[in-house]
Amino acid sequence: MPPDSLSTPRLTSAMLVGILVRRSAAEGGFATILVKGDEISGVILVQALEKGRELGLYERVFDFAGSYRMVRCGPDPNEGAEALSQYLARRRRSDPDLWVIELDIVDAQRFAAETIC
């Protein structure tokens, strides 16, 4: 019988973000916390960049298979910084416990998925 995912111990959002920041530095990338959310269970958004070029915004979501994955969210990077800023402001109004992490590393979306999912 598979373990009940609701009763299985899991890392807190603060721990996952800390791991992402430290691992990206160890791999020659850069990660910074733009918005600090709920320490225990805040939703984590990753603003993916590569050499300063905006690649998109990704959210860590729980799927029906009982695991986490990174899902694209927010405006298209071509819409510019103002569209991203407005999107993040709307998300923060509806979820003040939200984390926003800027991650600048090669293949940032894959890197984030491998690290925090």
Rank of each mutant, 00 (worst) to 15 (best):
M1Q: 07
M1H: 07
P2Q: 11
P2A: 13
P3I: 12
S5M: 13
S5Y: 14
L6E: 15
T8V: 12
P9K: 00
P9Y: 02
P9A: 07
R10D: 08
L11E: 14
L11W: 07
L11K: 02
T12Q: 10
T12W: 12
T12G: 04
A14H: 08
M15C: 06
L16T: 03
L20P: 01
R22K: 07
R23H: 08
S24R: 01
A25I: 00
A25H: 03
A26C: 03
E27L: 00
G28V: 11
G28H: 06
G29I: 02
G29H: 03
F30G: 02
F30D: 10
F30R: 14
A31K: 09
T32D: 13
T32E: 15
I33D: 08
L34P: 02
L34V: 03
K36A: 12
K36L: 04
G37Q: 07
E39M: 09
I40R: 13
S41H: 14
S41K: 13
S41C: 14
G42Y: 05
V43Q: 14
L45A: 05
L45E: 07
A48K: 06
A48G: 10
A48H: 02
A48C: 15
A48D: 11
L49C: 10
K51Y: 10
G52T: 11
R53G: 03
R53T: 06
E54R: 13
E54A: 15
L55V: 01
Y58P: 03
E59K: 13
R60N: 03
R60E: 14
V61A: 13
F62C: 03
F62R: 12
D63S: 01
F64E: 15
G66T: 09
G66E: 09
Y68S: 06
Y68Q: 03
Y68P: 02
Y68G: 03
M70W: 09
M70I: 06
M70G: 08
V71R: 14
V71E: 15
R72E: 14
C73Y: 00
C73Q: 11
G74C: 08
D76E: 14
P77S: 09
P77R: 02
G80V: 09
E82C: 01
E82G: 03
A83S: 10
A83C: 05
L84G: 04
L84A: 08
L84I: 07
Q86M: 10
Q86F: 05
Y87F: 15
L88Q: 13
L88A: 08
A89K: 12
R90H: 11
R91F: 01
R92M: 13
S94P: 00
S94I: 07
D95P: 05
P96E: 00
P96N: 00
P96S: 05
D97I: 00
W99L: 08
W99Q: 09
W99H: 07
E102S: 11
L103E: 02
D104R: 05
I105Y: 04
I105P: 04
D107Y: 01
D107P: 00
A108D: 05
A108L: 00
Q109K: 13
R110W: 04
F111S: 01
F111N: 00
A112K: 06
A112C: 05
A113C: 05
A113H: 09
E114A: 06
C117E: 12
C117N: 14
